[in-house]
Simulated assay, not measured.
Amino acid sequence: MAYKHDYDKILTRLVSILSRLNDGEALSVTELAREFNVSERTIQRDFNERLVSFPIYQEKKKWKMQDGYKIEKSKSLEDEIILDILEKITEGIGGSFSAKAQALLSKIKNVDFNPIYAKLNIEDISEKLAAIQILEQAIKEKREIECIYDNERIKPYKTTLQPLKIANYEGFWYLITKKDDELRKYYLKNISQPILLDKHFEVESEIEELLQNSLSIWFSKNTEPFEVKLYADANATKYFKRRPLPTQTVESLNNDGTMEFRVKITHEMEILPIVKYWIPHLRIIEPQWIQDIIDDDLKEYLSSIVK
């Protein structure tokens, strides 16, 4: 029942936010966090992840609905929003899972038109649904599992795991586990034959916050978080304002459209791919050693082209 209560609270908050945006209100993250008694990071996540399919944007620290857009309220606003979002999420997963979900949703919706489009590019894990059911039970009951894991480098091996979360990063599915008091990540598709064991384990309370603050699957539990300061030119700034990174805090917004901001990470690989993706529009100010890694990689890449 605790899970259902959490989902109900999130749904109530999302529907309230969308309804008010639909009515033309401009909403502040700080004010919403105070109103719903949650953190500002949670509200920012609502806008950047849970409501990302809707035409909303941030202007002068206020979130608004794009001009000329209206959500039809012919039935229940809540029901239509939920079904439209679910439909687009399942389309992104693909495979037989998507087909089954679409068939079920079509019976509920009884309409063909969906005003929402979402390009999620999530890998298909339809063939893993039976295994996922066992993993979900293990996570909820805090029970260990035994399974076969194929790491694609050596032959598959049997292992015992303590499952914490099933997580999706950049479209790929992982099982976050605890093993020998460390966090480990296993590629979900490489897990097979999971068996529930009778042995239970404890889960640290900070795991949820650690996952929410992570930038990628490279996050670490045993490394002290450290700050990275970045500079974004005008081309990149608008995107990092629309969809801030977890733990992102703006240090300066400049008249030329550029921005300096900070994020907290636990591993350099959380930020390196992001900076490389945005070259030449994003660079690291500090710590210098991370920028040096990027510079060395660029030199190696350019030298290979010259050859």
Results as ranks from 00 to 15, higher is better:
residue 233 D to Q: 03
residue 142 K to L: 06
residue 215 L to I: 00
residue 238 K to A: 02
residue 168 N to K: 08
residue 240 F to T: 05
residue 229 K to V: 13
residue 241 K to N: 10
residue 175 L to M: 01
residue 147 C to Q: 07
residue 145 I to M: 10
residue 213 N to R: 13
residue 173 W to N: 11
residue 200 H to V: 07
residue 198 D to K: 15
residue 206 E to H: 14
residue 223 T to A: 07
residue 193 Q to E: 15
residue 171 G to D: 01
residue 185 K to L: 11
residue 166 I to R: 01
residue 215 L to M: 02
residue 168 N to M: 14
residue 157 Y to L: 00
residue 239 Y to N: 07
residue 232 A to N: 05
residue 239 Y to M: 05
residue 188 L to K: 08
residue 157 Y to T: 12
residue 204 E to C: 00
residue 155 K to H: 10
residue 226 F to V: 07
residue 229 K to A: 10
residue 193 Q to K: 15
residue 204 E to A: 10
residue 158 K to H: 10
residue 196 L to C: 10
residue 204 E to G: 01
residue 229 K to M: 11
residue 165 K to N: 13
residue 177 T to V: 12
residue 210 L to K: 14
residue 213 N to D: 11
residue 182 E to V: 03
residue 141 E to W: 00
residue 234 A to F: 09
residue 217 I to C: 00
residue 156 P to L: 04
residue 149 Y to T: 09
residue 170 E to L: 09
residue 233 D to H: 05
residue 236 A to L: 00
residue 155 K to A: 13
residue 148 I to A: 04
residue 161 L to C: 01
residue 185 K to W: 06
residue 219 F to L: 03
residue 145 I to E: 05
residue 192 S to N: 06
residue 224 E to V: 13
residue 166 I to K: 04
residue 194 P to A: 02
residue 172 F to G: 01
residue 210 L to A: 08
residue 171 G to A: 06
residue 220 S to Y: 06
residue 160 T to I: 13
residue 159 T to V: 14
residue 234 A to I: 08
residue 187 Y to G: 07
residue 147 C to Y: 06
residue 206 E to L: 03
residue 162 Q to A: 01
residue 198 D to T: 13
residue 205 S to A: 15
residue 194 P to I: 02
residue 240 F to P: 05
residue 231 Y to I: 02
residue 141 E to D: 14
residue 202 E to C: 02
residue 172 F to N: 14
residue 157 Y to R: 08
residue 144 E to F: 03
residue 150 D to H: 12
residue 202 E to V: 09
residue 238 K to R: 15
residue 163 P to D: 09
residue 217 I to W: 01
residue 209 E to N: 13
residue 210 L to D: 01
residue 200 H to Q: 12
residue 160 T to P: 08
residue 240 F to K: 09
residue 219 F to I: 08
residue 233 D to N: 15
residue 218 W to M: 11
residue 230 L to Q: 11
residue 201 F to Y: 13
residue 190 N to C: 03
residue 186 Y to L: 06
residue 225 P to E: 02
residue 160 T to G: 00
residue 214 S to N: 09
